[in-house]
């Protein structure tokens, strides 16, 4: 899409250059040409400058600086010393870091498929037309996206809680032992529920937009060929949605491995379960903000970023190769 639009754009520019030549064939050409050339060379950079400035200062510079920092180590004796890849080697065998990663891999392997298939089902049902009050549903499902994850985690935390959570109250009322949503065994599922609550609607909106882009005569053609609603969803809509699905999978992998807010908030009510390295970002936070191990924190952030890129890249590559569904 980008290439195509760039090409179109190129043509437009060509046209713009050519038309003055034709219309003003009689007028003195050289000065006009000179002025145009000059403008073309400086103006776009002026429009780009503000964005590029913040981009360089707050995106490129932090990355470069962190990369630089990550090859040093602050010694108690002797101060800062160049250690090459030593910090990275330490990450490679750091069971705290990999423990957090494996927490999240388990989390992602269960939560992401559930959330995305839920979002897909809702989008297809919403798109089918056979229902009442479509606008209300579309709006309602999307509302959690407007709720800060801090607030979502905090409210669900109270709902889970033993003190005045409705589930504990119900259990006590029935004389049953209150369910423990915040134990070592249940915490990941409780977190998965919060994330599912937050992002199902967001993913649904993406799918819904992609479904709306499928031409409606395809549905008629499929119906004439005898395809039912299920077959239409499975063999027509799903393949056409594939780019959108791939995008949401990558966003979800990305989001899962970066998980911070929800587990960090849960730490307030379950400090014994959420330790200082429950997720890699929590680990990097405690390393940098609490322990001031800046060099090592930088290395951890980099490995995390690389890991996300590698997993997302591998996923894209694998599905391209698998190829059946993708275009």
């Amino acid at each position: 899409m980008i290439e195509a639009s760039a090409a179109v754009n190129g043509n437009y520019n060509g046209g713009a250059d050519a038309s003055p030549d034709r219309t003003m064939a009689a007028s003195p050409k050289p000065p006009l040409r000179k002025r145009r050339r000059f403008r073309v060379s400086i103006v776009p950079y002026l429009f780009l400058a503000p964005f590029l400035l913040v981009f360089a200062a707050f995106l490129v510079a932090p990355l470069v600086y962190a990369l630089y920092t990550s090859v040093f180590r602050d010694m108690l004796v002797g101060g800062r010393r160049f250690v090459g890849f030593a910090n990275y080697l330490r990450v490679a065998v750091d069971s705290d870091f990999w423990g957090g990663v494996s927490n999240l891999l388990f989390f992602g392997a269960t939560q992401v498929p559930i959330m995305l298939s839920l979002a897909l089902t809702l989008a297809i049902v919403l798109d089918r037309g056979a229902l009442h009050a479509r606008g209300l549903f579309r709006l309602g499902f999307f509302i959690p996206y407007a709720v800060p994850s801090v607030v979502a985690a905090l409210v669900w935390g109270y709902i889970y809680g033993p003190a005045f959570g409705p589930f504990s109250q119900l259990a006590r009322g029935l004389g049953l032992p209150p369910p423990d949503f915040l134990s070592d065994r249940t915490m990941l599922f409780s977190l998965a529920n919060i994330v599912t609550w937050e992002f199902t609607g967001y993913n649904m909106v993406i799918y819904y937009a992609a479904l709306k882009a499928i031409p409606s005569d395809l549905r008629e053609a499929a119906a004439i060929d005898g395809a039912g609603a299920w077959q239409y969803a499975l063999f027509v809509q799903l393949p056409m949605l594939w780019p959108a699905i791939l995008l949401t999978i990558i966003f979800s992998i990305n989001g899962t491995l970066q998980l911070f807010n929800e587990p960090y908030l849960m730490r307030s009510i379950a400090p014994a379960v959420i330790n200082t390295h429950y997720t890699p970002n929590i680990y990097a936070y405690f390393l940098s903000a609490a322990n001031q191990q800046y060099n090592y924190a930088a290395a951890v952030s980099f490995v995390l970023g690389l890991l996300i890129a590698v997993i997302a890249g591998a996923f894209t590559w694998a599905t391209r190769r698998g190829g059946g569904a993708s275009r």
């Binding site: 981009f55 600086y65 962190a66 911070f260 940098s288 924190a297 952030s301």
Partner: peptide
Amino acid sequence: AILVAVMIPQTALVVPTFLL
């Protein structure tokens, strides 16, 4: 470069930003 930046995990930038 900007398209690559779209894919950079937001929070992976937080700690480096803080360090700088």
